[in-house]
């Protein structure tokens, strides 16, 4: 265990670079800290003094981190970094917020315009809301992983579990809608047996539309989750490769 473990952990939390640059920087810092420490010991410093001087020499400032991000980041990172730091994050949040609003608006428009969505009935609304939430999380995650290139291990898997849970929730809601409308249709048939054929056909069409929509949306969200999971896995592989370059 390195005597600088606590410092390295603190630095690791601040170095938000894409892999494998992130691991490389951390490995370099770890090696240089140890080397500085040894060099100061050899010059006759006490352990405490050598440690203090080594830490003083490394001193990874926020400015140095921004410079590193400029060297290793992609075009989007350089662009957002060129805007003031706080303004940049606000700008990114606004952009993602606008995209989510656009997605909600488009979802509403699609639900109104497409016959299959109209046929699916009111149960499609919670299913669509869950799908929009899933895709919103997916869009944010894609933004962080690809555009910002923030590959810190702490947040690497964040949101993926929620995406999977929401995709399953869409299926659950679609099936729940089918069962509830079946129960309502059976009740209607009991009250008006003469309309049984029309009621049954109406329920069948609605249930089919709801199932098709629910399963399709869950499939799209599941696919987005799978792609993001693949990206996270490739980042972790790159981290491992950077640690073991040979």
């Amino acid at each position: 265990m390195s005597r600088f473990e606590a410092v390295l952990r603190e630095i690791s939390g601040r170095v938000n670079l894409p892999q494998p640059a992130r691991t490389r920087v951390l490995a370099e810092i770890a090696g240089d800290l140890d080397d500085f420490f040894q060099a100061f010991l050899e010059r006759g410093a006490s352990e405490e003094d050598a440690e203090r001087q080594a830490l003083g020499h490394i001193d990874l400032s926020d400015e140095a981190l921004r410079d590193l991000a400029r060297v290793h980041g992609n075009w989007f990172r350089r662009l957002s970094d060129s805007i003031a730091e706080r303004a940049g994050s606000r700008w990114e949040l606004t952009l993602v917020g606008l995209l989510v609003l656009l997605a909600v608006f488009l979802s509403g428009a699609v639900v109104q315009a497409v016959p299959i969505c109209r046929a699916a009935g009111a149960w499609l609304i919670p299913v669509a809301c869950a799908a929009v939430a899933t895709l919103g999380i997916g869009a944010w995650k894609a933004h962080v992983l690809w555009l910002r290139g923030d590959h810190r291990p702490k947040g690497l898997h964040a949101g993926l579990g929620a995406m999977l849970g929401l995709s399953v929730l869409q299926l659950f809601l679609a099936f729940a809608g089918v069962w509830v409308t079946a129960w309502a249709a059976l009740r209607a048939v009991g009250l008006e047996p003469a309309q049984a054929g029309i009621t049954t056909m109406h329920w069948l069409l609605g249930a089919l539309a709801l199932l098709v929509m629910g399963m399709s949306l869950a499939l799209v969200c599941g696919l987005a989750w799978f792609i993001l999971l693949g990206k996270v896995a490739s980042i972790e592989r790159a981290e491992a490769a950077a640690l073991l370059p040979d």
């Binding site: 370099e28 810092i29 490394i58």
Partner: peptide
């Protein structure tokens, strides 16, 4: 007297 933190971005830039 170089703060080593400032060296990394320069080294990585020169390498790129």
């Amino acid at each position: 007297e170089f703060k080593h933190g400032t060296l990394y971005p320069i080294l990585h830039k020169l390498e790129k």
